[in-house]
């Protein structure tokens, strides 16, 4: 529809078909992330259902052995879970004090100039490929620990967990620092006005005010450790074992997936499906933790 007005038309369409196709294409790009999630759920679900047609839930949850690769097959998930919990537990025991203290330093003590250097430097810890950490744990840390701790196996959860802890320090420190930073200065000033020292202000006022943010960072860091693969695959061993002894070889859920994948297992076999089942369990665990962490983050953001 054209108008006869002087100076040109205002009716009609400037945006042709091309413009609308572009918008649809861009929408498609945006939706791809949703398809990715759907794809993950779909792939995990179909293989998991196929798996549970052959293995009962009772076998999965009540057996204490995990030996799908042996002639005498057992499908109890707990040895893999214990390996995962053990390595992640050690990691968080290492990362929590370092991460917290580092965050306190960066947020409460460091000069702006120092902070600008140290903060990105700390982030490098999370950017080193995990295969490099795995090498470090196996080749460097384990021999040193073996000299100190009698009975420490060549593959053990202790050195893998410690190095994993080093990797997740920046996750805790940067999120905690954000949380500390969000504590309003008026609270600090209020404490100082009452005659509190810097230390008691930090421990009695600032940290308690930031507690949900700190919790969020710790949960996210645990989730990251639970999903971490290469460090444990290299340094913690590949033997499913229901134990909490950090000196022994264990196998985590992620390591099991790698172990089976290295063997080129044909599709459709129970072994092949078992890695998707373990993956599904892993997905549920990490998703839950990420979800809780996000909720906590939102709470402190809206509270402050």
């Amino acid at each position: 529809m054209l108008s006869a007005a002087p100076g040109g038309r205002v009716h009609g369409r400037s945006a042709g078909l091309g413009e609308r196709l572009i918008e649809v294409g861009l929408l498609g790009c945006g939706l791809l992330s949703i398809f990715t999630t759907a794809g993950i759920l779909f792939v995990l679900a179909i293989e998991t259902f196929a798996f549970f047609r052959e293995v009962t839930l009772a076998q999965f949850f009540f057996d204490t052995q995990w030996t799908p690769l042996f002639a005498d097959k057992h499908f109890g998930i707990w040895p893999l879970v214990s390996g995962t919990v053990l390595t992640s537990g050690i990691a968080i025991l290492v990362a929590l004090p370092f991460g917290l203290l580092a965050a306190i330093y960066l947020s409460e003590f460091a000069e702006q100039r120092v902070r600008k250097v140290l903060k990105p430097a700390l982030e490098i810890l999370a950017g080193v490929p995990t295969i490099v950490y795995g090498y470090f744990a196996l080749v460097f840390v384990t021999p040193i620990l073996q000299a100190m701790i009698p009975g420490l196996a060549g593959f053990n959860s202790l050195s893998a967990g410690m190095i994993m802890g080093m990797m997740i320090i920046p996750m805790i420190s940067s999120m905690t620092e954000d949380a500390l930073y969000a504590v309003p200065n008026s609270l600090r000033e209020g404490a100082y006005a009452l005659g509190a020292t810097r230390l008691s202000t930090i421990f009695r006022v600032v940290l308690p005010a930031a507690v949900s943010g700190i919790a969020a960072s710790v949960i996210l860091a645990i989730s990251r450790a639970v999903g971490e693969t290469m460090i444990v695959a290299i340094a913690a061993g590949q033997q499913p074992r229901l134990t909490l002894d950090p000196r022994l070889p264990v196998e985590t859920m992620t390591t099991y997936i790698v172990q089976v994948s290295m063997g080129d297992t044909p599709a459709g076999t129970l072994e092949y499906r078992s890695i998707f089942v373990v993956g599904a369990a892993l997905f549920v665990m990490t998703f839950t933790m990420n979800f809780v962490s996000q909720r906590l983050t939102r709470r402190y953001r809206s509270a402050v």
Binding site: I40, F42, V43, L220, G227
Partner: peptide, 17 residues
């Protein structure tokens, strides 16, 4: 949420899909 999914699970997605 995707940013928090362990990379090994992307491997399973790639394998299955």
């Amino acid at each position: 949420n995707l940013a928090g999914v362990p990379s090994v699970i992307y491997g399973l997605l790639g394998l299955g899909l």
